[in-house]
Design a protein around this nucleic acid. Structure first.
Length: 308
DNA sequence: CATATTTGACCCTA
DNA sequence: TAGGGTCAAATATG
């Protein structure tokens, strides 16, 4: 197993290298000639991705089984994939807890971590989707409140995707974002290619709490400027005119943040990395970094046809 | 006026 | 029973 882990680590490095290469290509805005290169890179990452999974399939780290997708990702296809929403969604909530009562735990769920440059940043919110905040709670032991969002198109298109955003304990610049379910709305269909959704990353999503985490550094707020994409995050640090700075002030930190989607014009731009852009490896999960990279990798070529 | 956010209360799970 | 998640009325914003 040790060797497998080592292998995975090595592959992760390769993947990282590929990622950097792609990042460079992205920066150079290679729209034409870059295409071929990107295709190659994607192919490479795909291979590495599979290799890592093969290696990690039997590699448990810190008690967490990595790359062991026991639960079928297909669970998302259902409009009911929206995590804890379902109970509340039911007209008669308490009426039939039977059959729903335990779904909270088994719902498709995956988490990510996003680092921003300043407390005013709301990077985690700009993932290209239209989120509507429906609640906020103070979490026991948590320094900051947790905000609850659901897809704006929940009622109009039956999209049950939701997410929870919370600043990491002790680190205001780090956001923990937990997604529940996939977007089944038109927006989600259009943005499939670069979505931080389980399907986009194959087996990276985790049906269990505290799933594979990716730590992503997001540069200046990516701007909820995009019409219909805004997702104001009202943590104490929220800034009034924040949205006006949607022009990528210092450039988005990463070239393919899971939180930025094609739906957000900005994300198509090759954003220059900012100082703290590089992946800050998630200490609690060696695979965290890989997870992130893989997701990015997959995002380019994996087709979430299931959402089409 | 339409839509989004805030926030207290309620419900569910462990 | 405590804590987490959601609802929905009130409020804010464009």
């Amino acid at each position: 197993m040790e060797q497998r882990c080592a292998l995975a680590t090595e592959l992760a490095q390769v993947l990282d290298t590929v990622r950097q290469l792609e990042a460079h290509m992205g920066v150079k805005g290679g729209a034409d000639g870059g295409e071929t290169c990107r295709a190659l890179v994607s192919s490479m990452r795909s291979s590495v991705d599979r290799s890592i999974h093969i290696a990690m399939s039997s590699c448990c780290v810190e008690g967490r089984v990595l790359g062991a997708p026991e639960s079928p990702p297909s669970a998302d296809g259902s409009p009911r994939s929206g995590g804890s929403d379902q109970a509340a969604d039911s007209p008669c909530r308490g009426a039939h807890a039977a059959g729903q009562s335990k779904k909270r735990k088994t719902l498709p769920k995956w988490s990510t971590q996003v680092r921003v440059n300043s407390v005013e940043d709301v990077g985690p919110l700009d993932d290209g989707f239209s989120w509507r905040k429906y609640g906020q709670k103070d979490i026991l032991g948590a320094m900051y409140p947790r905000a609850y969002f659901r897809c704006t198109h929940r009622h109009t298109q039956g999209c049950y995707a939701s997410k929870q955003v919370q600043r990491a304990h002790g680190d205001p610049l780090l956001f923990d974002v937990v997604y529940h379910g996939n977007h089944t709305c038109a927006q989600g269909k259009h943005c499939n290619s670069q979505r931080p959704q389980p399907a986009a990353s194959g087996e990276h999503w985790q049906p269990q709490p505290a799933g594979g985490q990716e730590q992503i550094s997001v540069g200046q707020k990516t701007g909820g400027g995009a019409p219909g994409v805004a997702a104001p995050f009202s943590f104490p640090s929220k800034q009034a005119g924040a949205d006006t700075g949607s022009d990528f002030p210092a450039g988005c930190a990463i070239t393919a943040s899971p939180f930025m989607s094609p739906a957000t014009p900005e994300c198509k731009v090759s954003c220059r990395n900012v100082p703290d852009v590089e992946l800050s490896s998630t200490t609690e999960s060696p695979m965290g970094e890989m997870d992130f990279m893989l997701q990015l990798a997959d995002a380019d070529f994996l087709d979430n046809s299931r959402y089409l």
